[in-house]
Design a protein around this nucleic acid. Structure first.
Lengths: 334, 334
DNA sequence: GCGCTTTGGGTTATCGATTACTCACTTGAT
DNA sequence: ATCAAGTGAGTAATCGATAACCCAAAGCGC
């Protein structure tokens, strides 16, 4: 049997309310003497608050629910959940994640979640996308993380893809690179937005299109051999151009990995002959490559923390789409 | 305001107890007519069970708590949490994970967890290790996943490292390989146990030690250049041996990745000249390598599922250490 | 000395679901 | 016709923490 406030009250010879006040209500009126004595007894008996009981009165459990659209364990989830967790902990809340896997749909997972009466619920996607949320849940879900609700009826936190590409391209330009190729992953929302930023930066710098090249890598199965050979052939062709690129910007770190291999085969040195830069900062890849890859880190942790802030705010702020900045991680590939 | 049984009872003109019986108590005595009518009203009002309230009587929430010793997001966690989740769902339980990060110790995280009154608690490690659990928690934690309690006072589920190495080595022997080198990662529990299996298999096959070689890779920072060069130099030396190995068994998939690169530099073909095999089945690596890597898959999912079974069993089985078998994933590197 | 405020703490109702107990009304057997 | 068994459903207590409300004693100004 677990210890309850009642057990402590009995032992201390006071009423439950006094015990409750002593342990939780910081400002409850009582002598320091009583408070201290009660705390000691609680400690001694090994009392642990029963959140379920408390929630009967509060109406909610100190939980932030997260509906994740992939198993909560992609390398990308680390940052989101971690940020959410640190933001939640600041308000003595815990994060409770449920995964949208197999044939479970949003509606059923949300209902399952609501059985636990979380204080607030967020929806998190593993990669930047648009998500169609059934209309009746637009109010239930407080924040979309790493995704936008199809009709923007819910506050969304997404990476500022375009801004990141702008920044990274300018970084390459500032490093003296003039002939920049961009190997993209078509079909992904992130890629499309990054491409916009890339072009913007070149426009602003006064370059016209002919000096820059945008080439597609393969979208879906980036593990397959075809993808690899596609990047390889792109790189080979690029290196035979009269105006050989002096920098290659990659859609993400995986593409960069293939570009590294392709450049090595062509005998091009990184960064001396060709600088390589990329997006995501998938640490296992980026810091492992030789030379270590300069890349824009996704603001996963920041999105998580910000989400907690928004969800736990006193008054829910108006719906908006917040674009969070990437962080430039300088390694030695530029 | 959320809907309660009371609201439904009022609307249906019956008592709460009848509503409770109709919705949850499968065998409660009442006319099908009443039951159906109540269910319809519940549906219409959007009733969602309040687990907190239910738990007041049950004494626990339908939760399986997991204390994870790393952020719940290593690629290895996928299987454990996923298995746990599928096992839990079969009993209408949810998985509630908390991470042991920063300066939070087991005691404080366990207390935090107990506030939610989970039905059972498991401890999960991200890689196979021994864990020192404070004595007072040996009874609180029901199962250790992927780790063993220092004094084996708690039922543990761990991968059968030795058996896996035995099986894989025999697989190589059956494939006609006779000169097998093993490049190990010293200092890791898993590696040491695998090495035992490797030696056992050779012994059983009647080989003496001279024909097999066990070489160390670097333990900690396997991303560093030194590690890479260590493996490289091992491989180079091996390939110059009079009795050149025809197979290299690797401590894990990362080591295999480096071995691939080293072999390529030596001009050795996989698997024609040298077969390569490994452990873990880190899919992102193993299926990506060229040729795809044959490796023993860690039983993460199985451990998770088994853990749920044990935790939710009617009567807690006696403490034991269960070794779960790996699964041989045949690709084309042997 | 009287009434008024402050301090310390008790009483009791409440949140929502469950359950032991009770009760009224049918049936069916004797 | 009467009693026993069975059926359908209500009553009220309960779980643990909290909060509104109440009360007694002490301190204070006049």
């Amino acid at each position: 049997m677990t210890i309850s406030l009642n057990d402590i009250a009995e032992r201390a010879g006071v009423s439950v309310k006094t015990v409750s006040g002593a342990l939780h209500g910081g400002s409850a009126r009582m002598s320091d003497d009583t408070r201290l004595r009660i705390k000691e007894i609680a400690e001694e008996l090994g009392y642990v608050t029963n959140f379920a009981a408390r929630s009967m009165r509060q109406g909610w459990m100190p939980l932030i629910g997260v509906i994740a659209d992939e198993l909560v364990t992609s390398p990308f989830a680390t940052g989101i959940i971690g940020g959410l967790d640190s933001g939640a902990r600041a308000s003595d809340m815990a994060v409770f994640a449920m995964t949208l896997s197999g044939r479970r749909n949003v509606a059923s997972v949300l209902e399952e979640m609501h059985r636990f009466r979380p204080r607030a619920v967020a929806y998190a996607a593993m990669y930047h996308k648009r998500v169609e949320l059934p209309a009746e849940f637009a109010e239930t879900v407080g924040v979309m993380i790493n995704c936008r609700e199809a009709n923007d009826r819910v506050t969304s936190l997404v990476p500022d893809e375009t801004g990141a590409a702008l920044e990274m391209t300018n970084y390459l330009l500032n490093a003296g690179r003039r002939n920049i190729a961009y190997i993209n992953l078509p079909g992904l929302l992130a890629s499309e937005l990054r491409e916009i930023g890339f072009r913007q930066a070149l426009d602003q710098a006064g370059f016209n299109g002919t000096e820059a090249t945008v080439l597609p890598a393969v979208n879906r199965a980036i593990y397959s051999d075809r993808a690899q050979s596609l990047v390889h052939s792109h790189v080979q062709r690029l290196m035979r151009f009269p105006q050989r690129p002096d920098a290659i910007l990659c859609g993400n770190d995986r593409v960069a990995m293939e570009v590294y291999a392709a450049l090595r085969r062509c005998g091009a040195a990184i960064p001396d002959d060709v600088a390589v830069a990329s997006f995501d900062n998938q640490v296992e890849i980026a810091s492992r490559l030789d030379p270590p890859l300069t890349t824009m880190a996704l603001p996963h942790r920041a999105m998580g923390r910000k989400a907690a802030q928004i969800l736990l705010a006193e008054d829910r702020p108006p719906v908006e789409v917040k674009k969070l900045p990437f962080r430039l991680v300088e390694r030695s590939s530029v």
